[in-house]
Nucleic acid binder design. Structure first.
Lengths: 161, 161
DNA sequence: CCTCATTATTTTAGAGCTAAATAAAAAGTG
DNA sequence: CACTTTTTATTTAGCTCTAAAATAATGAGG
């Protein structure tokens, strides 16, 4: 084996190791942040991250969203959305409505109470996220955002969507 | 309000929005990757991500790890580690051993079968991760790794450890 | 009409995960 | 040494999530 070949092999191996290290670090950061958010949502508002997430999606879509749309946006199964929606409906924060265009569909909307409860939480939540990322400068956040955008396109682009 | 103040305020608001967008994109990328890995682990090896994660930790520490050490490294509760270890022990992949230095502790180690099963999976798993990140160049991965490192230090450094 | 494939939601079974309570051993303190 | 606090692992109750099966409505073709 020549020196050039050895170098190429080494560089490839390092690149492989690099991807693994990168992935583990990314996973760690995400876990740290979700853990903090989960704990604070519980302590401050006695609610959970998926409940908050569902309300956030509805708040961005006052016209309501179907269960399938919610499951796509929240990246969970429709069965999971059903369970979370059940709880929020029991708490009076969301309402199931019939879709006039398709009787198979259910459209979920925020109730006035749900809007009020969510907007109180959203302000505080935004502050937490700002705090978590304030270790990075605006330029660094911009770079990170762009790199993750490229990663996301690659992940969505090829197989197993 | 003067023009300067308005600009400052606008810039701050944009910075806030930036943190939220960044966080949501980061969460999306992580969810996409974990979803792919989970599905492939199930299809190819009939196992799950937390099981794989526990085996991976033990593989890096042939001397064994205590339940508490595992829970820290896996970023889950010790109760959760107990349950996953129960399953892996029933499958004969790990073994509980008494810690001679501390009778409260349990040291978990890979069995020979566990080593064999894991190393077969690890090779394939590494290939998946390389594939997920090959949309980025070596330099881009390096930049992403560094930025996440800075983020991680900030997250660990301040309140709520 | 009537079937057949598709789409939308719910239900079910089981693993994952947390927080809190428990039990046992170790470590610190007067 | 006795007493208290801390540490370590397990257990328990309850929510979260998935995959797969069950319901039910839509739509296309014959």
């Amino acid at each position: 084996m020549t020196t050039l070949e050895k170098d190429l092999e080494t560089r490839l191996a390092e690149d492989h190791h690099q991807a693994i290290k990168l992935w583990l670090r990314m996973l760690t950061c995400t876990n740290l942040i979700t853990g903090k958010i989960r704990g604070r949502l519980r302590e401050n508002f006695a609610t959970t991250l998926p409940r908050f997430d569902l309300l956030a999606q509805l708040e961005r879509h006052p016209e309501g969203l179907r269960m399938g749309e919610l499951s796509q946006r929240m990246m969970v199964t429709t069965g999971n959305v059903t369970g979370i929606a059940d709880q929020l409906e029991a708490e009076g924060l969301v309402r199931r409505e019939a879709d006039p265009k398709d009787r198979r569909s259910v459209v979920l909307r925020l109730t006035p109470k749900g809007q009020a409860v969510f907007s109180a939480m959203a302000k505080v939540h935004e502050g937490w996220v700002i705090e978590f990322f304030e270790g990075l400068s605006t330029e660094e956040k911009e770079t990170l955002y762009a790199l993750l955008g490229k990663l996301k396109r690659h992940l969505n682009g090829r197989r197993s969507p």
